[in-house]
Write a protein that binds this DNA or RNA. Structure first.
Length: 464
RNA sequence: GUCCCCAUCGUCUAGUCGGCCUAGGACACCGCCCUUUCACGGCGGCAACACCGGUUCGAAUCCGGUUGGGGACGCCA
């Protein structure tokens, strides 16, 4: 059997972190088995669906690198198929008209709740034979009342539902449009989906859908319900947990590889391994090994993974994403790739890296007062001036020589390296943090370095 | 409320069908080392089988119950 999975979001909002993981698992499952991964946009709720949301979802998937096969399917365009299925059920007496008004149904549910029961349709139109042509009606499925329906889930195992717990769901609204449960079944069967991988919030819909597959005489796919992701407080993920939309992670300086690695490990593992390349994931991932319990979203671990990928990526590969975050031109300063190479190991995300890169293209506007106070003591000016003096005469302005010079200057004054390096750093960057000082000097270049050092020294001695 | 699911360190998890678990790894946290700053890195530490009963020579692992958490109960998807 050829494997075909799908991701079927409704375009009513952003692609959130839970949906992204579900998509990732479906994608991995397909790729692992050499099958296909397709998209179906569930846009049957015209009230809330928007083109913008569809685009945001597609962008999110692209950013994560989850490529799909075939052009995305739009559920709203398949309405005729859905109607045919409903007609087939009516013809077989497996569906019927229900004339109950919304008010009537509301009252019924309210009464049931008050009586401590589960609110569900009581089937009051199930046996009526009069066709009232002048009144609006919906089509309901005549679902079995006895026995049980078993969902044989790849993640959860066999889950039993008593058929008497399942009411007659609406297949077609009074305006003639099909509802979700009918549409998914018809579409998944029609598209040849072999594995339905989705969030466990759909588990309760599954027995209903299985009954529909049976009523329509369609092949039932394999189901895998993925546990939900909760916020750090254990509650459902929402706005107050920070970034919910997957695109927010891009804005916050995360790398897609890190997000993918984090997401896949949230609910799945392979021994003690933490870091997985895409290729490894495709080779190792098995949806049946996904854990059954919901997990909490932990930003700190994501941060760690992000830093890991940031440190191990090639500076070249990072160039574009860093460039996007810069609000100044890099044409006048050192090669951006070299700056990234110097900075990536000491940055925790792209935003952080971009911020640190600023000093290579803009001279400090001010000097950190605390750092100045701490590092400029008796004699400091003499060490620095001596270094500048010597550096000016260097035939080649390069890292090794600049480093040598720091060593010899320190020996000459009998001071530790920090006594010289920190003042230099503050003069060059304005803050007491930068890549190694010799590297910083060489990247900045002779002219820019000397200018910053002299100007800074003058400014600081004026102030004191 | 009813139905369904879940339950190992604070978090993510290992724990292949009971013994090798005085429960392993990772993140976080705390020390120490490295060090020209900040980081990286290295070493070490803290920390969990929800509870109660069974089954068994033996249970984190099997069974039942309790408690706790989550999901679903729409002419939304």
């Amino acid at each position: 059997m050829t494997v075909k999975t799908r991701f079927a979001p409704s375009p009513t909002g952003m692609l959130h972190i839970g949906g992204a993981r579900t998509a990732l698992y479906a994608w991995l499952h397909a790729r692992h088995h050499g099958g296909q991964f397709v998209l179906r946009i569930e846009d049957t709720d015209k009230e809330r669906s928007t083109d913008e949301a569809t685009q945001v979802i597609l962008d999110g998937l692209k950013w994560l690198g989850l490529n799909w096969d075939e052009a995305p399917t739009f559920q709203a365009e398949r309405i005729e198929k859905h109607k045919q299925a409903v007609q087939q059920l009516i013809n077989n007496d497996l569906a019927y008209r229900c004339y109950c008004s919304r008010e009537e149904l509301d009252d019924m549910r309210e009464a049931q709740r008050a009586a401590g029961q589960k609110p569900m349709y009581d089937g009051r139109c199930r046996h009526r034979h009069d066709e009232k042509t002048d009144q609006p009606f919906v089509i309901r499925f005549r679902s079995p009342t006895d026995g049980e329906t078993i969902v044989d889930d790849q993640v959860l195992g066999a889950v039993h539902f008593q058929n008497k717990e399942i009411d007659d769901l609406i297949l077609m609204r009074s305006d003639g449009s099909p509802t979700y449960n009918l549409a998914v079944v018809v579409d998944d069967a029609d598209m040849g989906i072999s594995h339905v991988i989705r969030g466990s919030d759909h588990l309760n819909n599954t027995p209903r859908q299985i009954q529909l597959y049976q009523a329509l005489n369609l092949t039932i796919p394999t189901f895998a319900h993925i546990p939900l992701i909760h916020g750090a407080d254990g509650a459902k993920m929402s706005k107050r947990h920070g970034a919910v939309a997957i695109t927010d992670y891009k804005k916050q300086g995360y790398l897609p590889d890190a997000v993918v690695n984090y997401l896949v490990r949230l609910g799945w593992s392979h021994g003690d391994e933490e870091i997985f390349s895409r290729q490894q994931l495709i080779e190792l991932f098995d949806v049946a090994q996904v854990g059954k319990s919901a997990s909490r979203f932990d930003t700190q671990k994501l941060d760690w993974l992000n830093a890991h990928y940031l440190h191990t990526s090639s500076a070249n590969a990072l160039c574009d994403v860093v460039q996007e975050q810069l609000d100044f031109s890099t044409s006048t300063g050192p090669e951006l790739t070299q700056v990234i190479a110097a900075l990536q190991e000491r940055s925790k995300n792209i935003l952080d890296l971009a911020a640190q890169a600023t000093m290579f293209y803009q001279a400090p506007a001010s000097y950190d007062a605390k750092a100045v106070k701490k590092n400029f003591k008796e004699g400091t000016t003499a060490f620095v001036e001596s270094y500048i003096e010597q550096a000016q005469r260097l035939p080649e302005w390069e890292k090794e020589a600049l480093h040598q010079l720091i060593s010899t200057t320190c020996e000459k004054f009998e001071i530790k390296m920090g006594k010289l390096a920190q003042p230099l750093r503050i003069l060059l960057a304005g803050v007491p943090v930068s890549p190694p000082i010799d590297l910083t000097l060489s990247l900045l270049g002779r002219e820019e370095s000397l200018q910053r050092l002299k100007q800074g020294l003058a400014q600081l001695s004026n102030a004191s």
